[in-house]
Design a protein around this nucleic acid. Structure first.
Lengths: 222, 222
DNA sequence: GCGACGTTTCGTTGACGGCCGCAATATCGG
DNA sequence: CCGATATTGCGGCCGTCAACGAAACGTCGC
């Protein structure tokens, strides 16, 4: 039996807006330094340091001292998953047009939606299994979607690569192509940001678009 | 920014031990009255009333006025599911700072440490397989550890019995001997309480002691 | 209607926690 | 070694919130 003190103590870690903001910032899976988090949360470094010490002691975060920096990240994937569970529950109070837990991972689409898209692209041989490199069909498909492939190839950035999602433990499409696809999805009104600035909502238009382009059905996202 | 406020607000509902105790009590799915919850949480009715109003306003609980009673229950099944998710995560995170998932089970040692100790005692025939009764060697071993066996036998309490651990689904030593062993371990500095008051931390001295007395190695606790 | 009981509101008290600035410590670059 | 940068520790201030008792309110049983 988990006693009330343990539950209250754990919840107390997130019950402060400053600490909550820090944990949310770390949801992208990348380590931040103490100073970055302090600035992000809008508090003095000394204040942030105390908060982060609390969060680490409470098992929410893990830290690593490297030189004069203290890098912080979520303790593990399970913690990231729990945070997202809580967030999705909070979000679910409002209209639930979103049928999937989707979110941006830096500049590309992550979460279940990202994995579903990548799965479908693999199935249709638009990308290859190893390294997620785009096939000829994949390049053509991107053009059809509305991406300026030539412009992408002009940059030095890797065109397509896999990115491991925290909670899904699955790969999804990243790289220049992933970012371009995400931008197109926004521009076309297929996805839009929720208030949380991190979560995505798949619009009805987006549902139709992904169904037509990839055969991704709403059921495959549940 | 807006998101962190929502998260902090929600977590804040559970961040108080009194409110946490109330929510835990409601996890059985049955409605409780205000007075019952007040007594259960150990606070005055006026205090409990304020807390429950908060929890209802925050969407965690639902209430229903019937006559002169106010019946409270979790808002919905999803909320109950979320609570259980959080609790299960806490269970796996709580002992993270310790080298083993140890905890007290009433007055004796439970968790992985308790199971490991009992396993070792079985292996060394200090207790018998059925009923965990102490053997002659077991009584001598307890004396060696520093337990006043004669004093234990003077009480009416069962000397040794098995206790089924919640999460391990394995038996560990309980009864007067289990309690005495736990007390000795505290007094000798082999184990100490973490802040959570429920989890235990095995000290280096404890690691050495259990290794010498039972051949229990840290590896067997992982 | 009249107590008995459960609940709520109000006002007060006291403790805890977040915040800052400043000083101290540790590391990196030159 | 020195200045710059990053982080931590220490006081002290201030707002917030949980706690209580007393009193008011509403309901039930007789």
């Amino acid at each position: 039996m988990v006693d009330s003190a343990a539950l209250a103590g754990f919840a107390g870690l997130l019950a402060d807006q400053t600490r909550a903001a820090m944990c949310l910032a770390l949801l992208n899976g990348k380590p931040w330094t103490m100073g970055q988090l302090a600035k992000h949360a809008g508090v003095a470094p000394s204040t942030a340091s105390a908060h982060l010490t609390l969060l680490v002691a409470g098992g929410m975060l893990a830290d690593e001292h490297k030189g004069r920096h203290r890098y912080l990240r979520l303790a593990d994937r399970k913690m990231a998953g729990l945070l997202e569970d809580i967030l999705s529950h909070i979000d679910s109070v409002e209209p639930k047009a979103a049928m999937a837990r989707a979110r941006t991972c830096y500049d590309h689409i992550g979460g279940e939606l990202g994995v579903a898209i990548s799965d479908a692209m693999l199935r249709q041989k638009l990308i290859v299994d190893s390294g997620f490199a785009l096939t000829k069909d994949g390049l053509a498909w991107l053009e059809q979607v509305g991406v300026d492939v030539a412009a992408l190839q002009a940059t030095r950035r890797t065109l397509a690569r896999p990115c491991l999602d925290w909670t899904e433990r699955r790969f999804h499409l990243a790289g220049a192509a992933g970012a371009a696809l995400c931008r197109t999805a926004f521009d076309s009104g297929w996805i839009e940001r929720t208030k949380s600035e991190r979560a995505l909502r798949l619009t009805p238009a987006g549902t139709a678009a992904f169904a037509g382009l990839l055969g991704v059905t709403p059921e495959s996202l549940s």
